[in-house]
């Protein structure tokens, strides 16, 4: 197994008394795609900033490519590509100029930067936009330009902090496709997200983070297997009856050994055979307004681990 490119041990970041990150440990191997999944305020971005060598840790150990960010910040950052949560492109410059000035920050020769800028604009599907104003780009295009900028130094590790938050579904899919290509080329990806479909699409392995600590770790499939069932039955009884019927179901299904989650708008029943559960419910004389049998997702894992839903 190749040496890990990121090693975090008992990583802590405190702001005054508040611990944004409270003892996180994980390792990321070269070429791996690793995710931090959790709700807003879980400590994902703070972890990213420490890995990105722009935030100093309060305690714990952190090694990026075998170097300590407290000592070798610039050296570590020379090997990273960073896609921050909100774009910080220079809106006073044109699209291509953004790549040119950023490439120079890495001490790369102008000629090489110019050549890479053109390649990356093609990769980011921004041909023909070279001279456009940044403000004139759509949200998805700005995001792709930010990714192109993050790749200008041919980074060993790409850090993506909520790469698709705020994008429409089509823009998200284009972005996922680009990230998937990078993954295929062997770029190590570290990404945070609160979208489970994103984590399932892009991550080889992930940790579920809540309140600054790791709740679980594994591949998406492993996590689902360990913390959920194969299928989930979702039934709705209308807002007035949901809680009451839900409680009844919880007693009945609980006796069968199935887990039941009563959410404000729907009831979730965890089972390896969703259809069979639905039959049992209707046989018991209950008439759900709608019902849906689906595969378990990371959302269910999160719900199981924290008792709360991921996107609130």
């Amino acid at each position: 197994m190749p040496a890990p490119v990121i090693v975090a041990r008992d990583l802590v970041k405190k702001y005054q008394d508040f611990a944004a990150v409270d003892g996180i440990s994980f390792e990321v191997a070269s070429g791996e795609s690793f995710g931090l999944l959790g709700p807003n305020g879980a400590g994902k971005s703070t972890t990213m900033r420490m890995v990105g060598a722009v935030s100093t840790r309060t305690s714990g150990e952190l090694g990026i490519l075998g170097l300590d960010p407290d000592v070798h910040g610039p050296e570590i950052r020379s090997q990273l590509g960073v896609v921050p949560q909100s774009d910080n492109l220079d809106t006073e410059l044109r699209v291509r100029e953004n790549l040119l000035v950023y490439g120079r920050y890495f001490g790369l020769p102008r000629k090489l930067v110019a050549q890479r800028a053109d390649e990356l604009l093609a990769f980011a599907q921004l041909e023909g936009k070279e001279k456009a104003r940044v403000d004139a780009l759509s949200g998805g295009m700005k995001r792709r330009l930010t990714i192109a900028r993050a790749l200008i130094n041919d980074p060993r590790i790409l850090l993506l902090d909520e790469p698709t938050t705020g994008l429409d579904p089509q823009a998200r899919h284009i972005l996922w496709d680009r990230l998937f290509r990078l993954k295929e080329q062997g770029t190590t990806l570290l990404l945070t997200t609160h979208y489970m479909d994103e984590a399932e699409q892009l991550c080889d392995r992930l940790v579920v983070v809540d309140k600054g600590t790791i709740m679980a770790e594994g591949s998406p499939a492993e996590l689902i297997r360990a913390h959920s069932t194969r299928e989930v039955l979702e039934v709705r009884f209308g807002s007035d009856h949901n809680a009451e019927v839900g409680a009844r179901l919880a007693r009945a299904q609980g006796a069968d050994g199935h887990r039941v989650e009563v959410l404000p708008d729907r009831v979730l029943i965890y089972s390896d055979n969703g259809e069979a559960e639905l039959v049992k419910i209707t046989e018991a004389g209950l008439r759900p307004v709608t019902s849906l049998v689906r595969r378990s997702s990371l959302e269910d894992v999160f719900l199981r681990l924290t008792g709360r839903s991921l996107v609130e």
Binding site: G66, E75, I76, R77, S78, Q79, G107, N153, R156
Partner: peptide, 10 residues
Amino acid sequence: DAARAIAAGR
């Protein structure tokens, strides 16, 4: 990796 980073950061 570390050696490459140190060279690139110079």
